[in-house]
Nucleic acid binder design. Structure first.
Lengths: 229, 229
DNA sequence: GGCTCCTTTTTGATTAGTCAAAATCAATCT
DNA sequence: AGATTGATTTTGACTAATCAAAAAGGAGCC
């Protein structure tokens, strides 16, 4: 069985690469795991020995088929646990990430399956992050962010791509949960500000940095709803 | 925070001592944890340094107040998780122990509380083992075992004190869950056999060893139901 | 071409937890 | 008492994961 550390390395390599052929630089990996670069190098070499990753010295690292399989399973556990914590235990949206970080390494595949069934086989977790299927398929739909949307059309929030409790708390307080509808009323690129409005509610100003963490889709797609990738 | 190993040592010391003043021999502890005796000695000494146990060299070990607090919290997590797995996820009675062994170290106190509330603050887990209260109170009701009951009166199963999947599977198959009612129809001490019967069902013969794992209470106590200690 | 800077790798140490096997202790049994 | 036995502790070694700091590459810049 993979240790907790191994599972974490694999999960973060998966999260840091947009497609499975892309090399993740060691520095980025070390940063994501909060270890010094030397530690990441050592660990990656031993993962390579086990056939879980391919290490290109001085270039980076990527998952092998087997490594990706393990990583997707961990990610599936993480996101299903998050969903469980919010939907069933009614936990605070902003706390579940840290909690799931522990639980993802402690639940068996059987519990995973039963949790999945209990929750009705959800497609995405409370932050809108897609949940890998049991077969290891991960939806990679590309969404626009609030930072890049023009003023005008109604937008549905689909995902918050920033796991920090601080940001999530902020988003929750402002009502920016996935599923809610907003429109951009103002874009001030010079000032780095975007202003949103939910129906006739009061306007909400966001920095471009913050807005970049909020993925949205246009509310009534012109050519009918596109069915995944 | 206590590591997983520390939590396990404390939990097993708690489980191996009937009252909190009793010394647990190092051999017994090592056996319960499946480590060699030397490992237990080393670990116990470091637990003593942290003030979690009191180590009497060559005699044994017992929990301090703080150690007991931590141990009870782990046990509470273990038993509430088991209850959750059976009651909510409908998992097999005989599998939940191993599962809970992992999860008990991964859930936070907040999740614990919410789980407790979700399950309706149960007093005992699916095996009938008492669940420590949040305040650290552990019911220590003493029950008779089937091995020591005379033939005749109706008995309610309250607890199975044997965590092995094999035994639990056997008990489940025979219908020996906590809450069910049986009576002893025959005791053959020489042969080491006890025969039980559930209503008018077919008789079930158990070895004394097996019968000793099944705790029962008389169904209609003569002097009114005693209200715990 | 040679320098500089940034990233990555190497090297040497450290911590937690473990095992194997030798040493020690205490209790019991002649 | 002296010897035997069984439990416990000590000693030395190992693995996984980590850090700090030195060494090595490579990319771009004069």
């Amino acid at each position: 069985m993979a240790t907790i550390a191994v599972e974490n390395y694999l999960k973060h390599i998966l999260l840091l690469s947009r497609d499975s052929s892309e090399l993740v630089p060691m520095g980025a990996l070390a940063g994501a795991l909060s270890v010094v670069p030397g530690t990441a190098t050592t660990m990656v070499k031993s993962l390579a020995d086990e056939g879980l990753v391919e290490h290109r010295p001085r270039c980076g690292v990527r998952l092998t088929g087997e490594g990706r399989r393990v990583a997707l399973n961990v990610l599936r556990k993480h996101r299903l646990v998050e969903t469980f914590l919010v939907d069933v235990l009614k936990m605070d949206w902003s706390k579940v990430h840290t909690e799931a970080e522990q639980l993802e390494h402690a639940i068996s595949d059987e519990v995973l399956d039963r949790l999945d069934a209990l929750l009705g086989h959800p497609q995405s977790d409370p932050h809108g992050d897609p949940i890998p299927s049991k077969q290891g398929k991960l939806s990679s739909q590309v969404y626009a962010t609030v930072a890049t949307c023009l003023a005008g059309p109604n937008l549905r929030v689909v995902r918050i791509t920033e796991q920090s409790a601080e940001f999530l708390q902020f988003a929750e307080k402002k009502g920016l949960q996935p599923g809610t509808t907003w429109r951009v009323t103002e874009r001030d690129l010079t000032g780095g500000l975007v202003t949103l409005r939910r129906g006739t509610g009061k306007p909400l100003a966001l920095s471009l940095a913050a807005a970049g963490n909020i993925l949205v889709e246009p509310l009534k797609p012109a050519t009918g709803p596109a069915e995944g990738e």
